[in-house]
Amino acid sequence: MRAFTYERLDAATGASRRADHPGTTYIAGGTDLLQLMQEGIAHPRALLDVSRVGTTGVTAQLDGIRIGAATRLADVIEDPIVAERLPLVAEALAASASPQVRNMATIGGNLLQKTRCLYFRDVTTPCNKREPGSGCPAQAGQNRLNAVFGGSPHCIATHASDLAVALVALDAEVIVERAGGEKSIRLDDFYRLPGDTPYVETALEPGDLITAVFVPIQATNLPGRYLKVRDRASFEWALVSAAVALVVADGEVVAARVAAGGVGTKPWRLPAVEDRLVGRPMDVQTLQLAAEAAADGADPRPGNAFKVPLLVNAVARALAATADQEANR
């Protein structure tokens, strides 16, 4: 690890100006950044610790629910407002990492964790995301873990966060402290497709500090399920995951929110599935037809073609589980 300076910040005010220097990086829980530093992938020269900055915890507002960026994942899972009003978020977080990591990792850091693409995490190989212009060995190499949606010839890395998938389904916003004021960005717009600049991953500008995540009121109090399929029963990133929330009235689906993880270069909303749900009777046939639309537009490679049927089945199961939950309300 290369030498760096370390400083703990007490307030969000002025942070973005302090951090707006090449080589200066925020650290919160440290659980992804320290992996990258240990592996020689990131080498910051100055760390600004923001783990005690801003309002932590969960707040119910009139217009929605706000989660402070420095709140630890475990504290969000245990929060009574989240348990009652954002069950999809609680379930996605409970399926993330390990209990120890959930006690350390923060909401802000979780949304900015780097991809698990094998080549990105191995400095001895080329990778356009890590070393712009060096190539993308995943295209023709080991791509079992890579994306089937949103890729480009330059990068097909998936976004690894489970939380982000649940939040994209709920139309959440990221609240950012930027020199000159506060800004709110829809999470779906926050993440960038790789295109020919796979190293540009988000809408953040140098120095930007995430202070909170906000879920609008219309996306709260919905029955929903997060289903995660992985190589082992627990403590593993998703091969495929499905986040589902439904509004049902008089046996008809009135609103549907569906997103998938493990399959896209960013958390992947599935509007084709939603379209096949809304206005239809809530029955087995509707759910199955809708789930099949999850495959629309998939662009698999030999190593990850299995993800397409896996996704359809995961969406079908998550829809059925949500329907059960709705029926038992």
Binding site: Y6, R8, I27, G29, Q35, V101, M104
Partner: peptide, 12 residues
């Protein structure tokens, strides 16, 4: 609270 001590810095 239980944590993994390899992913936190002593200064943190």
């Amino acid at each position: 609270r239980r944590i993994v001590s390899c992913l936190t810095l002593a200064v943190m």
